[in-house]
Design a protein around this nucleic acid. Sequence first.
DNA 1: CTTTAGCACTCATAAACAGAGAGTGCTAAG
DNA 2: CTTAGCACTCTCTGTTTATGAGTGCTAAAG
Lengths: 342, 342
Amino acid sequence: MAGLSDRKQKILQAVVTDYIQTAEPVGSRSISRRYKLNLSAATIRNEMSDLEELGFLTQPHTSAGRIPSQQGYRFYVDALMGPPNLTRQEETYLANVFTQLQKMREIDQIIQQTAKVLSVLTSYTSLVLGPQFRHSAFKQMRLVPLDEQKALVVLITSVGHIKHRVINLPQALSSQELNQIVSYLNEQLAGQTIENLSATRLRQLRSDLYARIDLLSQVLQLLDESSADGEGRVFLGGTSNILNQPEFKDVEKIKHLLTLFEEGSRLTFVLETSSEGVSIRIGTENAITEMSDCSLITATYQLDNRPVGAIGVMGPTRMEYSRVITIIEHIASHLNFVVQDL
Amino acid sequence: MAGLSDRKQKILQAVVTDYIQTAEPVGSRSISRRYKLNLSAATIRNEMSDLEELGFLTQPHTSAGRIPSQQGYRFYVDALMGPPNLTRQEETYLANVFTQLQKMREIDQIIQQTAKVLSVLTSYTSLVLGPQFRHSAFKQMRLVPLDEQKALVVLITSVGHIKHRVINLPQALSSQELNQIVSYLNEQLAGQTIENLSATRLRQLRSDLYARIDLLSQVLQLLDESSADGEGRVFLGGTSNILNQPEFKDVEKIKHLLTLFEEGSRLTFVLETSSEGVSIRIGTENAITEMSDCSLITATYQLDNRPVGAIGVMGPTRMEYSRVITIIEHIASHLNFVVQDL
DNA sequence: CTTTAGCACTCATAAACAGAGAGTGCTAAG
DNA sequence: CTTAGCACTCTCTGTTTATGAGTGCTAAAG
């Protein structure tokens, strides 16, 4: 697998970069012309034939050029990929974006804006998973009475995520008692991460306050929902960008992807399961069948050294890997700061 | 314009219903076969020729069948459209949905679910505009201190919409002073609609509290943003449904629509400007050029007899108007109750 | 005067076909 | 081991041809 001669590597690299640019099968001739390898077309032809045998290239049909196979892209990404090539323009654009993001206060806005920026910069489709409630720490809880029977529970966590819910008040409770319950809960829950709450802790609380079950259970339900699916929302950017890719001129393919985009939960899953740091999944490495001819590059962002969310870019397997990777790295690392400040 | 002979109307109706079903130009022959008009193809041919002259039908090319023109659809919708035809299945499905919606507490969830239901039932794309903050009345405001320098402003309105924002506290303020300001604001703003606040009222408040400008301006900014674009978010459902329509097999068209879908503000505008009750806009009646071969059916929903939001369904001009209209009416009227209960 | 049958004509769509071009694989020579 | 040459393959494009649905017109029938 690793035993590719230097020359084969150079040729593979040429094929991949050429195909990434043109989206057309690349022939021996055009390589010997465009890349300074000082080899004749015939030699390259032989090498390409070998590379096909080894599984790095494929032929759409006899007597067409070669295109990289999934394995070919994998090798390219792991070993051959050139350095990023961001233009100065793009870098200043990035810098501008960062100062703008810095100013925003609402997490939703930040997430959405991030998605947009990612898609504009890369001209692929971007996915951004908002900070996950259940990874963040409980900070404070407040009860705002609305009228005789209703009150607003406000839950504040360390990622600046604020969750609220109107609940019904048992009429038997005096405002004093209410305050007691709230401050008791605040005391008990302070600093815990939401996901750690579910099991033992909540049961204990429940028995402590067994007299107030009614009220409590509503609050706990809010906690529970938050920890379950609630906040795992994925924001998309540039969904129409995929249509610019020649590999998606087929309406059926588009339909598959669009319906995938509508199923938030599956997207959430993909992003949640992405490993820490930058991860690159090519074609069928993606587990989601609809994405089997796409590549997905993701990165996580952290809060207090714990990954709380992820950003990603999806494009055809013929994707500008190095470019996207550097952009994603920049944005993810910056997002760390932005989230920290909330 | 209104002077269409009875027979012409029957034929026009036949053409429209046929075309709605088949999406193919319909010829004189198939009408005399499929519809019991007791007229020969030739007669129908003559009538159709007249209808074309009058602008109700068009021919894609000589010697093809006719398809309804925009004017044709308009006449159909205004005068010819048959009664709704919901199956019993669909009605029970609707009933189920309603009980489910009733249970939800979070406005976002309700909106999103509504969008989904609308798109599933109609198999077109649905747009739902959440309740507009600026039409709703101010109810209460709270300040939750987070730490020495920061506090959370919570704004509660009568549509059950809750808006929050972290703001910086001027250190000079004691908690007593804070409370004073808050209760003063509550007093002054109670019952006002958000949109009425902007102009004179705010200026007055600003001068009243001129000493506390720093704090106040942040709060006011929150109010302002809410009244501006903030809450006018549109949720989409079934975006992939358009791909099932044969008129959208062209990738360019799809791209135009998808990019339109990404521009939330333009969609907001369309829904905001829809007149009270059910409105039907066919083709270029839509003002948005990207939608010039689509039709949009919208309905508003109310709170306290004021329209606060809208729902809509978008499909090709060849849309099942009567079906969609009844579905939309049902859902909108139900939404009135759901919103009321929040 | 209206309706209908008959017929020639039009036009899009599909299938069949030829030619061009790009690329390969193989063979033989450097 | 490299390269030039050549025959072969396969896609793509444009052209031609056939088919069929549908129209418009004319003339006869009601």
